[in-house]
Design a protein around this nucleic acid. Sequence first.
DNA 1: TTATTTAACTAATAATCATTAGTTTTATAC
DNA 2: GTATAAAACTAATGATTATTAGTTAAATAA
Lengths: 188, 188
Amino acid sequence: MLSKKAQIFNAAATLFRQKGYAATSMQDIAEKMDMKAASLYNHIDSKQELLRTILMDVANDFIEGMAAIKSSALPSNEKLKELISLHVRLTIANPDNMALLIGDWTHLDETHKKNYLSLRDNYENDFRKILKQCMKEGYLKKVDLEIALFSILSTLRWTYSWYSKQKNRSQLDLEADLYKCLIEGLKK
Amino acid sequence: MLSKKAQIFNAAATLFRQKGYAATSMQDIAEKMDMKAASLYNHIDSKQELLRTILMDVANDFIEGMAAIKSSALPSNEKLKELISLHVRLTIANPDNMALLIGDWTHLDETHKKNYLSLRDNYENDFRKILKQCMKEGYLKKVDLEIALFSILSTLRWTYSWYSKQKNRSQLDLEADLYKCLIEGLKK
DNA sequence: TTATTTAACTAATAATCATTAGTTTTATAC
DNA sequence: GTATAAAACTAATGATTATTAGTTAAATAA
């Protein structure tokens, strides 16, 4: 049984995803929890806290995952494979939170938004380095690095949005199929 | 010189993209136009009209583009290439409107949302058919159709978000590089 | 110039918002 | 069973919201 606080965070995440942060009222969240809006404040500090906590939790999962991959002894092409796996794993574990990470970070207050963007930049830099190494070491073609990076990231980031309709798919299958599409290419 | 109405639509699109539809107030739009919020209503009917019109304009561009490609005599692999071109062209022409199409359709009122989703479904179906044909005719490997489809669509749809930072890139270069990443594959 | 339309303004409305204060009920500890 | 703490409630606050009504200024047509 989840603590009430945890339940509130889950309810918020679901609603934030459905209607967006700005369009979700504390009443909406309260209603989903079968209580009055004011009562929420016995458990949480503010609406912002809800957004920030949910968001930072996922962000940290990514940061930790990236750190583990970076410091591993794997060859760069295996690291790339591990990155795909990381995204798939976290997406499957919690698509709602993932949706927030991708779409609602704009509603963080100015201070936390800056912080979030700097973390995201770091993550993208690490990703870029691994991709670059893959090209350098001859695992990948030398196509435009930025386009390759954002092409891969776009797909990985948007997995949550169609995974909801495709739940009958194992994590491993998903990883393998994404690897084919993103890395090996579709052309015969 | 753009009509005042057109200017308002542009201001709205920019702000909607920056802060999201729900978090953008009529005051915000008015401020950007150097006028009072109430005066906006001499030119437009409602906030919803702003969202709906912007959104449907881009949606129609896509629908028309798809119709032209569908009815063309091109082989399926060339159709696929044309689809990439269509997305790139419309994205470059107006990244703000594209952002709305991808991210803010949720804020359409119930009736128009249903309509929008049905249009989007049709578009995805047409896209899927072309992709399937490419596989059938041996241009593409027979990987999972859904994953291939959404992998391509994710990247094409998100192009707007990083094109803003990469403006010094010609349409043709972008199309070619995306084709390489999405279709030919990165693996050596 | 005068008449008419267009588009700006001010002011007000009624709704909704996040949040606080104060109170009552419920659950826990002794 | 009584005391204490946790968590629900009601009520209110003050801000912001989209939009309307009514009025004035600016631009256009005659």
